[in-house]
Design a protein around this nucleic acid. Structure first.
Lengths: 107, 107
DNA sequence: ACTTACCGTCAGTGAATACTAACCAAGACG
DNA sequence: CGTCTTGGTTAGTATTCACTGACGGTAAGT
């Protein structure tokens, strides 16, 4: 099922979302704190967090009056495994192509 | 320098480009072949290939009348390393948060 | 109960982008 | 040469998307 990873890659397509994720890697933060550190409004941060949440890249939990967001290690790991598989396939195809090219040159 | 990886993630943000890359993983293909397999026109494929090329995710070489595109293992690998680093940082932060949570519960 | 602070969501707007149609360049073949 | 095929590029359009402003809802403090 690669639908989840599609959503994850779509989420990482935006630079602001990547910056949010990179900022959240040091620890959980509330929405207002993130909005203060970025040159966009608070609703924009909320919408980006919703996208990241639907992509399972972050998780949120209520903390009294505020709401803390933090990265979801499972989501990062699934994406990492996806690239691992992709890389091995690409490397295999590249090696096969290189060997075929060698045959071309040495005949 | 993460500018290159930013471009790579931007390139992977589009579903059509991901499909093109997945199709190219089996081996090099010319532009017309790709355009025949996807429900978009040939210029659209060309533009997507240009984005993928600028992101160093694919490489192209002339083959007589046509032009063959194939995945660039180096680009895939740099992206994989990027996620590797990201994942280890996220895992570390998660462990630290879990330990802090344990201290909260056991005090 | 009232106020303040924090957050999610909706409607509307402006900008980025993906797409098609048309034109132009280069190699293969008669 | 002339023709056909293949591919890149350029307007121009349409769609998507990110952002702001306004509203409602909940929790803590006075």
């Amino acid at each position: 099922m690669n639908t989840n990873q599609d959503a994850q890659l779509e989420a990482l397509g935006d630079a602001t979302r990547r910056a949010i994720l990179a900022r959240l890697i040091n620890g959980p933060l509330p929405v207002g704190e993130l909005a203060r550190e970025f040159p966009v409004s608070r609703p924009a941060i909320s919408q980006h967090l919703r996208v990241l949440k639907q992509a399972r890249l972050v998780v949120d939990r209520p903390a009294g009056n505020r709401r803390l967001y933090q990265v979801n290690p499972e989501g990062i790991d699934s994406l990492r495994q996806y690239f691992e598989q992709f890389w091995t396939q690409a490397l295999g195809a590249f090696k096969a192509a290189a060997e075929a090219s060698d045959h071309e040159e040495t005949r």
